[in-house]
Design a protein around this nucleic acid. Structure first.
Length: 496
RNA sequence: GGCGGCAUGGCCAAGUGGCUAAGGCAACGGUCUGCAAAACCGUUAUUCCCCGGUUCGAAUCCGGGUGCCGCCUCCA
């Protein structure tokens, strides 16, 4: 079975064959560091994090590059507004980006270059483009001449004529064609500037990705990714620059993630309907956001809402509950072993589920990284594990324990590829409780006092009193669970 | 105006030519429980926006319609 990837260039799923067998070179467009990241950025990061993890899981040696744009109009503007140096602004938001991403469990790519570290390479690239007649200089600016590149529009499926027809295109003096874009911009006083053959200036946005990708991955590489909104003009322009300069085809598979919506509309700065990642962390654990975002296919839009986040939270509780139960029963999860055998049909039914989970998971993931379907397989296994334990009220036999342990282990093995269930259940539930109590402003000791009081009442079989306390706790959004070994409690979040 | 995407049960969401249309959430009934909760079992789409067509056979392909969204300016 091979991996199939939807390629924006062809508009179809294609069998994935890297340029060099066993090795994958991928480049992902990162952020422009001028503000805190929102849920849309989180989606992109998570989608490509999962692709990165999965390709490694499938045995590829992956070299992944994700850039930071640390020089650009928005950063400069922000600097002016705050009276700060643009470089400091970029630094500050790159730092914030790492804080957000680390919590989300996004693995760091192999290389994370910043545009300003590659000024010389960009200048060299622009010189090649001028030499080859693809670019021209006007005063201190250099533009790419889109008409010279015959393939312009092949990724976004547009024709130059159509583009100018409907849209208002910035009329900039000196451009030969309205769609020509800047490779180099002359800097105004007070703006960041680097010396160049065309005078003091700074690079245009698109050129950095062409320069950095070729530097780390070669002029032709396997996967290029980013949000759907980058297809035009950013990726179209990258193709034009790179293919014009190197005379070789650029990225082989173009992967684009869909948007995060709010009430069916794209989450964006301009609409003001965005939630920063750190705002989300005030109410939910980062892992909840991750599960939510992976519950839909990466190319589909997802609607961000309290309801869907609550749903993801319940889903996580379910998974961790299963792992907790299994761990308690078998005493931690040991190493991977062969699955034990038995003649018992129930045993074999679970054994079958466990035996096939890895291939079922892989089949779904191979099909264009279908995380939603893959998660379905994991929920299915989770339920099977719960069922088996539920139907064995007595002590499990050593063989049964072994089977359950392997089931728990494999559940985690698959989840890990999605960046999920990497913590202990205790940690998850503790954190869940802590956040809920804080949000509802409930005192933990008060709750525990009432629980103890109720335990006493129950001991005396004073059910009326016990229920009275339980009702009181319920009003505080506390749900109790009486277990043979004692009473547990959890906080019911308002959205539940 | 140009280009592209989406429409599946109460909600979320897989499935893109053929076994009983995954899975999650919610609801209801049951098992368990002092009663609950959690967990488990069962029930909830003869049907996949509408109308035509192709086919032995379509949610899946083609044509038309309706609705929603995105890109064409910075954007993950």
């Amino acid at each position: 079975m091979t991996i199939r990837i939807y390629n924006t260039m062809s508009g179809q799923k294609e069998a994935f064959e890297p340029l060099e067998p066993g090795r994958v070179h991928m480049y992902v467009c990162g952020i422009t560091a001028y503000d805190f990241c929102h849920v849309g950025h989180a989606r992109s990061a998570i989608v490509f994090d999962v692709i990165y993890r999965y390709l490694q899981y499938r045995g590829f040696e992956v070299v992944c590059v994700r850039n930071f744009t640390d020089v650009d109009d928005k950063i400069i503007k922000r600097g002016q507004e705050e009276g700060a140096n643009p470089q400091a602004i970029a630094e500050q938001y790159i730092e914030a980006f790492y804080e957000d991403m680390d919590q989300l469990g996004v693995v760091r790519p192999d290389y994370e270059p910043r545009a300003t570290q590659f000024i010389q390479e960009m200048i060299e690239l622009i010189e090649i483009l001028i030499e080859k007649g693809y670019a021209y200089q006007v005063d201190g600016d250099v533009y790419f001449a889109v008409e010279k590149f015959s393939g312009y529009g092949k990724l976004s499926k547009r024709k130059l004529d159509d583009m100018i027809a409907g849209a208002r295109v910035a009329v900039e003096a000196g451009k030969r064609h309205p769609m020509d874009f800047a490779l180099w911009k002359a800097s105004k006083p007070g703006e960041p500037a680097w010396p160049s053959p065309w005078g003091e200036g700074r690079p245009g946005w698109h050129i950095e990705c062409s320069a950095m990708s070729s530097k780390y991955l070669g002029s032709t590489f396997d996967i290029h990714g980013g949000g759907k909104d980058l297809i035009f003009p950013h990726h179209e322009n990258e193709i034009a620059q790179s293919e014009a300069a190197f005379g070789k085809s650029f990225a082989r598979y173009w992967v684009h993630n869909g948007f995060v919506n709010v009430n069916q509309e794209k989450m964006s700065k301009s609409l003001g309907n965005f939630f920063t990642i750190r705002e989300v962390y005030e109410r939910y654990q980062p892992e909840v956001l991750r599960l939510f975002l992976l519950s839909s296919h990466y190319r589909s839009p997802v609607d961000f809402s309290p309801e869907s986040m609550a749903e993801a939270e319940r889903g996580l509780e379910r998974f961790y509950h299963t792992i907790e139960q299994v761990s308690e029963l078998v005493g931690g999860l040991p190493r991977a072993e062969q699955l034990p055998t038995s003649k018992d049909p129930e045993f074999n039914s679970l054994r079958e589920k466990i035996d096939t989970i890895l291939t079922r998971f892989q089949d779904d993931m191979d099909d264009d990284f279908n995380t939603a379907a893959a998660l379905g397989q994991l929920f299915d296994l989770s339920r099977a594990l719960n069922r088996f334990q539920d139907n064995r009220p007595g002590k499990p036999t050593p063989e049964e324990k072994k089977l359950l342990a392997q089931g728990g282990l494999r559940l985690r093995e698959c989840a890990k590829v999605l960046g999920l269930l990497e913590r202990s259940p205790e940690e998850f539930f503790r954190e869940h409780r802590r956040m809920s109590l804080e949000m509802l402003d409930i005192d933990q000791e008060a709750v525990e006092g009432l629980i103890a009081e109720r335990a006493q009442a129950r001991k005396e079989k004073n059910w009326a009193r016990a229920d009275e306390i339980r009702n009181k706790l319920a009003e505080m959004s506390i749900v109790v669970e009486d277990k043979p070994e004692g009473t547990r409690w959890r906080v019911k979040t308002p959205s539940e």
